[in-house]
């Protein structure tokens, strides 16, 4: 019984996600859009670091540049 409950719950959950994705194209950006958010965090800092580190290695080779 426990196994059946788990299998049914997993199946419903997976099926629900795939079903919504397939039958409701309008929902897709609603589900997918948040993935762009992290690119907006600390954007100016990232740009400054990228400029110093080079385009191929946008972040992290050095400390953030001093602004004082």
């Amino acid at each position: 019984m426990v196994i059946n409950v788990i299998v049914v719950a997993v199946t419903l959950l997976m099926g629900g996600f795939v079903g919504v994705w397939l039958v409701c194209p309008r929902c897709r950006p609603w589900i997918e859009a948040p993935k762009w958010q992290p690119l907006a965090w600390d954007e100016p800092v990232q740009r400054a670091i990228s400029a110093k580190a080079g385009a191929g290695n946008p972040v992290g080779k050095t400390n953030p540049p001093s602004r004082t």
Partner: peptide, 23 residues
């Protein structure tokens, strides 16, 4: 994504992963 300056591959997959993990 913050360091690689590239979004995660799929937010949809990450949502499935999240719900299955909590289940």
């Amino acid at each position: 994504p913050a360091v690689s300056r590239r979004p995660i591959y799929s937010h949809f997959l990450s949502m499935i992963g999240f719900w299955l993990l909590f289940l």
